[in-house]
Amino acid sequence: MNTDVMDSRPTYGGLRLDPRAKSHLVVVDGDGAPAVLDAFAGAEDELNRTTILCAHEDVAAGGLERLCALRAARLQLSGSSEDLLTEFERVLDGADMSVRIYVAGRESFIGKVVASAALRGVVPDSVVAERRGGVSRRVQCVHCKHIDEGVTASPYRCSGCGQHLLVRDHFSRRLAAFQGVRIDAEIPGEVPPAMELAS
């Protein structure tokens, strides 16, 4: 086990079809489409029991056509990634307990899907997820509680309170966010240069 990774930060094993599931609900974001193709291509029987949800604008170039070509029982497009999340919640509310949830894309998006599923009684570890796409994090400022999406470096400046925040590896599944803490609290003004987040 990699001891550098905090236990609060989920690790995503990769999309693997669960043949025992009665139906499959797949949510795709950004660069996630190839992960879905790898897992589902050729699985005719399973695809007959599969719903794929994705957002027009968010699926990377070419991804959409290839998802269409999979010929899943249902493929549903949303206008934006926010609508996609709402759509996911609507479909999940109507699904029975034996549905298996898959999500592929940015870590911040996976976090939101898992958190919203958890509110609906789905055990987070039962969601099959694969991280694809660049490193960016959703971070909550512990001081003013503002959440910044797409944080790529640490420290960064909180757009809520303007303080310079260290991005910790500590992750809350409920908030689907990492924690940001003021980096120069002990010596105000002593802010080290920002470094790209490596993972």
Binding site: D7, V142, R174, L175, Q179
Partner: peptide, 23 residues
């Protein structure tokens, strides 16, 4: 440590920041 951040976490998750103890 923050209750508002940690609420809903399990034993291993909220202890994640503690060094050495895990090993």
């Amino acid at each position: 440590w923050s209750l508002d951040f940690d609420i809903g976490m399990n034993f291993l998750e909220w202890h994640a920041p503690v060094p050495l103890a895990k090993d």
